[in-house]
Nucleic acid binder design. Structure first.
Lengths: 244, 244
DNA sequence: AAGTGGTCTAGACCACCAA
DNA sequence: TGGTGGTCTAGACCACTTA
């Protein structure tokens, strides 16, 4: 009969340690940007060797949940605008250069009842509300993307009336102000024809094809927290995807 | 003055070991599907501990260059149709299910001089030749993708006259017959309007938007070896991309 | 039962950073 | 100078596969 050394939980030690570390991040015991205790301290606290503790942290570092800096410490990852751009923004200019969307003009922001799609995609309760943002993003001075963003009102109370227009880097705002960290996202791309309104906003001839990106963003604990539909002009920019 | 234990090469031991393992795979010392010697043997051969040897192999396993099977051994990864599908084929049906392209009808295959784009993208010498394949791929019985594929003739001698039409899983063929393993690829997506020919082949109304996928595939040593332009009907299928 | 990869330890030393 | 992460070892034992 196989017996485990640490009775409750089972499985490899480093997995158990990893899960306990994740739990502390998810429940806010360690906040984004905070430094973790040193590896020696953590190893002692969890009752494992440094090697095992390191193996646990290794997995979290490759998942971008932790950030290590030699000589300084281990930190909970944060959504800097830079990371948000390189990790979550995939439009690159045709010459291969990466460009940051400099400005985004908010076309509308409102609190309203969730549509049925929003309800099912975001796994909301019946009659829940969402905050919806519609905005126009520019690259190299030209409007290229129209975004429709929906987030559960319950998690982002007051976002629609916060005085200032929401910033370009939304994920940093989610994290800093509302304590919601986007951990991963799944995107589905389709080709569509720009609507009349879109041709006007993006300053395009009618009939121009766009790429529609349907993104569902998940929080640390795996719950879906953001639904984003982007319609992008890909005349001078392309969506870049690497297969390793 | 910092001194390294193994004089030539410098850097961490496990990196040096990793590079030596990669070299053996690249130069064909260990072929795809082959088993490597056991970790103990390799550690002894390289003069490092099992821990260090394992750390070296770990990096290659996460890069999909090696495959470990507990109790059996460590193997050089191969391009099975399954892997090719899950790793390199990103179109999924609208209901989220994954589907394999069952058949591909070859529309044309020829040996010809490289165009200027092919020349620069594939880094060919002047006046080099390529083999070009044009084919139609079906999903759930309907034609959905038109692919234009170009590979250097030098590496794939005779591909255009090999009797049988090239199979669906091209990467497996590249690997088994020509000893060329595709390690990674970069894709750039744009929205386009189907040409008259495409609307006919894909059985679509004129003016239908398609997604164009421009893929450049790299071999084990990093040289570009395949240029592939896919034009996809995304009415019932979407291109899926995960951001972790 | 023998051979393989997978986990874990205790301890050593190195490279980097900040005060 | 002291603390942090990064590397490396030698050896033990576990889990899985094959015969």
């Amino acid at each position: 009969m196989p017996e485990n050394r640490l009775l409750p939980g089972g499985g490899p030690l480093y997995i158990q340690v990893r899960d306990r570390v994740v739990a502390r991040i998810v429940n806010g015991h360690w906040l984004p940007g905070n430094a973790l205790p040193s590896e020696q301290q953590l190893a002692a606290e969890f009752g494992v060797s440094q090697g095992t503790l390191r193996k646990a942290l290794d997995t979290l570092v490759t998942e971008n949940l932790l950030l290590r800096q030699q000589g300084k410490g281990t930190f909970v990852a944060t959504h800097t605008p830079h990371r948000e751009l390189f990790h979550f923004f995939h439009l690159v200019s045709a010459d291969g250069m990466r460009e940051l969307p400099t400005t985004s003009r908010v076309l509308g922001i409102e609190l309203r009842r969730a549509t049925t799609t929003e309800n099912t995609r975001l796994k909301l309760s019946r009659s829940a509300s969402v905050i919806h943002i519609r905005r126009l993003r520019e690259l190299s001075g030209k409007p290229l993307i129209i975004e429709d963003i929906s987030v559960p009102a319950r998690l982002f109370r007051g976002l629609e009336t916060n005085g200032d227009a929401p910033p370009n880097a939304l994920y940093a705002l989610y994290e800093e102000v509302y304590g919601v960290t986007i951990r991963r996202a799944v995107e589905h791309l389709r080709a569509v024809i720009a609507t009349a309104e879109e041709t006007k906003l993006l300053n395009l001839p009618s009939g121009t094809p766009l790429i529609e990106i349907d993104r569902l963003g998940e929080a640390l604990d795996g719950t879906p927290v953001e639904l984003r539909l982007s319609r992008c002009n890909t005349q001078s920019h392309t969506y870049r995807s690497e297969i390793e």
